[in-house]
């Protein structure tokens, strides 16, 4: 479904990614791990179109993404969350989910002005879908609260719900359990597994190895911008190169 081929990215003199080749097959959950500063977020930014790689190619569902604008990538079916939560903080949880369905709608401003049937039907659908997502992530009770005022765990889940509201085929999660306790992490793992059931492919960045074991079909390990290992969670755990990377990098992540 998603194929990255030889992706490199440099910022000035710094080579953040070099020759990264990685693929996410349909209906699979792929993990991406690596020490701090390895280039994981940079990779997600590239896939979601926020920055363009210095070299390399990306194909998604058979389409070449070459300098494609982020909104267009979303419309093709890729959605993401952010390492540092980036909800629309002044808007309610419900509004966040309505906005995320922007590309699903077609009603123009004029339709809204004259209350065209198309506009009314569409609004109803948007709200229904949003409420369904709220319920699914246990957020129905806080639908009318400004997203910025929600407790941390709710914000994390709302961000995933918002990404899903764009109705993606591929979901990119950047450290979805950061700051969660083990019970919450476990519950989120269950949610992620259910998404696979719905036919969504997932690329998840995680530091928490228990979640990786819980959900991932395969894992890539990134270190200093290079893929140093690829395999099932168990294979990765046994790979000396991975152990070396984590121990050698002074990182306290639970690898």
């Amino acid at each position: 479904m998603l194929e990255l081929n030889g992706i490199s990215q440099s910022f000035g003199g710094l080579k953040a990614l070099s020759d990264v080749t990685l693929s996410v097959p349909e209906q699979r959950i792929v993990g991406l791990i690596g020490p701090n500063g390895a280039g994981k977020t940079t990779l997600i930014n590239i896939i979601s179109g926020l920055s363009h790689p210095t070299s390399g190619s990306i194909t998604f569902a058979g389409e070449h993404l070459h300098r494609t604008a982020p909104h267009h990538i979303t419309r093709l079916g890729i959605a993401r969350t952010y390492q540092n939560i980036r909800l629309f903080g002044d808007m309610t949880a419900l509004q966040n989910l309505i906005i995320a369905q922007h590309a699903r709608g077609h009603a123009s401003l004029l339709d809204a002005v004259v209350f065209a049937p198309r506009y009314r039907r569409e609004e109803r659908d948007l709200y229904q879908h949003a409420e369904m997502l709220l319920e699914r992530f246990g957020l129905s009770g806080v639908a009318q609260i400004a997203a910025g005022n929600l407790p941390y765990g709710d914000q994390r889940r709302l961000e995933i719900a918002r990404a899903l509201a764009t109705r993606p085929k591929l979901l990119l999660l950047d450290e979805p359990t950061a700051g969660m306790n083990p019970a919450e992490t476990r519950a989120l793992g269950e949610q992620i597994l259910r998404l696979r059931e719905d036919g969504i492919a997932i690329l998840v960045i995680e530091h928490d190895m228990s979640l990786i074991h819980q959900v991932c079909d395969e894992v890539y390990v990134l270190n200093f911008g290079q893929i140093i290992s690829h395999g099932t969670p168990n294979e990765i755990k046994a790979d000396p190169a991975v152990i070396e990377a984590y121990l050698g990098s002074d990182d306290d992540a639970s690898a």
């Binding site: 604008a69 909104h71 906005i99 922007h102």
Partner: peptide, 12 residues
């Protein structure tokens, strides 16, 4: 609120 996120939500 956030131009970058808006783009990621499919807004041109």
């Amino acid at each position: 609120q956030d131009e970058t996120v808006a783009a990621n939500m499919g807004i041109n």
